[in-house]
Nucleic acid binder design. Structure first.
Lengths: 254, 254
DNA sequence: AAGTGGTCTAGACCACTAT
DNA sequence: TAGTGGTCTAGACCACTTT
């Protein structure tokens, strides 16, 4: 490899009058250079001091650009050694739930059918999940989310039913997938833990979702907690496998 | 709510002699206050100037703390208005592929069995995916990843077979799930696009994975591209549903 | 010792929002 | 107009790695 770069002649310059801040511009310049193959995985980038001189910006600005690319897993930094281009790594891939929002792109076509609301005594399983005593009252809700006229998500949820705790009413909206568009804001919920797995539709689920059996499905389970770290809601969404496909990318996207 | 905070008396102070940098300490202080419920979703945080005075740090340092929390979707900022605590939002949830690494926690128990390697003419489907002409030569690989003695992942992959393109040899390792632990570093791969879905095991897959039918499975499909943005590999991992459960959290975890 | 990334300062100036 | 977040400077000092 011949040394093409020159301390006095960067190919692209930063436009100080542009709308984009300098640190974003510099990050994109570097990203493009990497995408072009000018820097390959494993290669070392110019040092931060060099980048300061090359592009006429201060150390803090260079640093922010570097951090942007590092957050994107495009480069990695090592104190005392330098900054290097990262190889493609499957492990950095992440599938985002907000992809679901595309499904609901047409709000008019989306509606929620309340199938069932009941107050019943907690089974041992529910009691364990909601940190209740066996037989304590809880609320059981079954909902169906339709897109067009097709049933898309089947949701079942158990909520605590405790007059001393200021919950329930608000939660019935929040834990709903609706919360994906209309930002439901609960003052009560502190956090939620979620998991997703692939499973077979049960007979009941297949009937509700108007699917044949056997059929594969995504199951998204959730538990929400209040600010005392006590669970207030446990439930799960079931969705036919064909309805859902999560996508993402790894490596340099520029 | 009575106003407990006072401009002159922050509850926690920043320890300048500590190992943790000041901006991390401040971010954690704020995160703990939010986790305690001192600031609720929708509440406005003290302004950056106030935080500077309260904790005796410069604007840039406060700003970095704020950005840390904003990246974690704990707070959101609005220019000219202020900084606010975000409500729990399902849409921010992300499932990370590196969770798979736990499956391979014991490297000795993990091994890869090469089932089949063949050179064959591209079918129309393969030609389309790899941007080849119908009938062009390509490499077909079938692998089985075992954990203990249990077959866990069944991987099938098509690779381009073109002597003029410097690939193949390296790829055979990189696109492998092995790349999750042993950081395989290809100089050739620029990016990959991934998708995941829930499906039923086919007869062949069930046999290879020693599973009954019907059975649900995760299918992770991948296409990798070189620095000319040409596809070099197309393939997919199949994994029995019971083997895999992705987990994550939303909201305040402190 | 020289070079690297990492933190931090004490301001300045700008853009935006509210009043 | 006053207050807010957002960008940027031109250094300083530190911790680490390499030679």
């Amino acid at each position: 490899m011949t040394q093409v770069t020159d301390d006095k002649m960067p190919v692209e310059r930063i436009d100080r009058s542009a709308y984009e801040p300098a640190y974003v511009q510099l990050a994109n310049i570097l990203r493009r250079q990497i995408a072009r193959g000018q820097f390959r995985p494993g290669d070392q980038l110019p040092s931060e001091a060099q980048l300061c001189r090359l592009y006429g910006v201060s150390p803090m600005t260079v640093r922010r650009s570097i951090n942007l690319l590092a957050d994107d897993d495009v480069i990695s930094t090592a104190q005392g050694r330098g900054t290097f281009v990262k190889p493609v790594d499957l492990g950095t891939a992440a599938f985002h739930l907000y992809e679901l929002q595309e499904l609901f792109s047409n709000p008019d076509a989306t509606r929620i059918k309340l199938l069932d609301v009941r107050i019943l005594p907690a089974s041992s399983r529910v009691a364990r999940k909601l940190d209740l005593s066996l037989g304590d009252k809880c609320i059981y809700i079954r909902r169906l989310l339709l897109i067009g006229d097709e049933p898309a998500f089947y949701h079942r949820e158990y909520l605590i039913y405790d007059p001393t705790r200021p919950i329930v009413e608000a939660e019935m909206e929040v834990t709903d997938l609706q919360g994906l568009f209309s930002e439901a804001d609960s003052q009560v919920l502190k956090r939620g833990s979620l998991s997703i797995e692939a499973a077979l539709l049960t007979a009941e689920e297949a009937e509700v979702l108007r699917a044949e059996r056997p059929s594969a499905a995504f199951v998204l389970e959730h538990v929400f907690y209040d600010f005392d770290d006590r669970p207030v809601s446990w439930g799960w969404f079931v969705c036919r496998g064909e309805w859902l496909k999560f996508s993402t990318t790894v490596g340099i996207i520029g």
